[in-house]
């Protein structure tokens, strides 16, 4: 079996004052993923190594790491594609807790804030909510998000300003706003309308490049800008009702 040199960013908070690089050698074949390589290191070379994973099939979203500086899912990235070697580091733009484990609570707060669930009246008599294929097609792409956070590691605006709701949260808000069964748009727009909502985005588009599920959060954010502009115009023309957002500064 061929072997590959892997540089790992290590950080053990009880021992290290700053992260540092450590070199490992792993054996691999065509089917060895980055996650497999980490398991090999932990099992055979250094049991103190920490990283997150669960499903090993690109569905739980827990194994995100920076692979040669690019946010990737460890279980969906293969050593065979990196003949020159690998550098693995924790996801960018998040505080590092230990080794490859980051603190994602900021991302989760943003997700919570946009109410990423169906806000709808129960369908009558236990009937299912009916939806046509055309209604489904409007949001289907945006519903594939696995909350892996790769897009946050890719987003320079989230890096500059962690209060920015960020790609996945906005994509999910957009996903529910587009859902014909949902009636919670008014509750979500207040968040999207703010400087930290859709307007925190300057359309860099790297989020969509790194997304492992083809969600295209950048498209959602920019469709959200149109939605937010229309929302503003509509609010303008009906001043009698309480404004959705607080008074403008």
């Amino acid at each position: 079996m061929p072997s590959m040199a892997i540089q790992l960013q290590r950080y053990l908070p009880e021992r290290d004052s700053t992260p540092h690089w450590q070199a490992f050698n792993v054996e691999y074949d065509d089917s060895t993923s980055v996650l497999d390589a980490l398991e090999q290191i932990k099992a055979e070379q250094d049991s103190s190594l920490s990283y997150r994973w669960s499903c090993r099939m690109a569905i739980c979203g827990s194994c995100g790491v920076m692979v040669n500086g690019v946010p990737k899912l460890g279980c969906k990235t293969f050593l065979r594609d990196y003949p020159k070697g690998l550098q693995l580091a924790p996801l960018g733009n998040f505080p590092v807790e230990k080794d490859l484990i980051v603190d994602m609570s900021r991302f989760l707060e943003h997700l919570t804030a946009i109410k990423p669930y169906l806000i709808a009246e129960a369908a009558p008599q236990g009937q299912p909510h009916r939806q046509t294929p055309a209604q489904l097609a409007r949001y289907k792409q945006f519903s594939n998000c696995i909350n892996c956070g790769l897009c946050y590691a890719a987003c320079p605006q989230f890096g500059l300003k962690p209060d920015f709701l960020g790609p996945a949260a906005i994509a999910l808000a957009h996903r529910y706003n587009l859902d014909s069964r949902d009636s919670g748009k008014a509750e979500r727009m207040a968040q999207l309308n703010s400087d930290n909502g859709v307007w925190g985005c300057t359309f860099v588009g790297y989020c969509s490049t790194v997304c492992p599920k083809g969600v295209d959060p950048a498209a959602a954010v920019n469709q959200g800008k149109i939605a937010s502009t229309l929302d503003g115009v509509i609010q303008w023309f009906k001043p009698a009702k309480a404004s959705r957002n607080k008074e403008q500064r």
Partner: peptide, 24 residues
């Protein structure tokens, strides 16, 4: 998992004036 900031979802932020500049 650290405690989530529950208030994050309850405060209503200001509406941005970006739609004006972005439209132009």
């Amino acid at each position: 998992m650290p405690m989530l900031n529950k208030n994050a979802s309850q405060t209503t932020p200001h509406r941005s004036d970006e739609p004006i500049w972005w439209s132009l």
